[in-house]
Design a protein around this nucleic acid. Sequence first.
DNA 1: GCGACAG
DNA 2: ATCTTGTCGC
Length: 230
Amino acid sequence: MKIIEKPADWPADEATAIAVQDELRTRVVLDEPGPPPSSGLVTGVDVAYDDERDVVAAAAVVLDAVTLDVVEEATAVGRVAFPYVPGLLAFREIPTVMAALASLTRDPGLVVCDGYGRAHPRRFGLAAHLGVLTGLPVIGVAKNPFVFTHAELGPRRGDVAALLADDGEEVGRALRTQDGVKPVYVSVGHRTGLDNACAHILALTPRYRLPESTRRADRLCRRALIEATA
DNA sequence: GCGACAG
DNA sequence: ATCTTGTCGC
């Protein structure tokens, strides 16, 4: 399979990457509610790394939002496009993620990715970045609160608490997806509302803490990395 | 000034 | 993200 290289104009240092974020962030659309939950298609994306070989594998798995059945899968393998810097995660993996999305034969519908959208130091995390570059509705789901804080939330599935920035803005939501488990952190990326995003994530977590979409994508990209590395 | 810090 | 054994629990 072809190796996805980073674009020729890809940022080479942190200062340039931050400048790119500050330019692209103006194109995020936040006033659309997005697709209603439990309808249409939902596509999970995830990546796996082999830092030794500088390789990243991305997977996109399309699910039927009602049955959660897999409708289509796609993978792409690329070169790691940027070092890991908190706040600049998107620059590592976006070219390869976009290649995986582009090789799908149908519209991905709503995209769910690991990490953050608006819950980001400059309000432009991976989910927002991916949304602006693809034009698709995207939401971000992370496993920890990063630099943000939230009040304690109830112990039951569906309980929520606002994820707050220093200035008091609600940049996302801590959402309990199963009774008694650690919450996940949901934030909108592009062309979706926070209420809708949380409803989608609840619909995608009938059994486990993490959405079915990311669990499927996680397994697939790990498999793709092993096959590409072998 | 020094850490901490999505994946 | 990734490196990794056993262990607790449904």
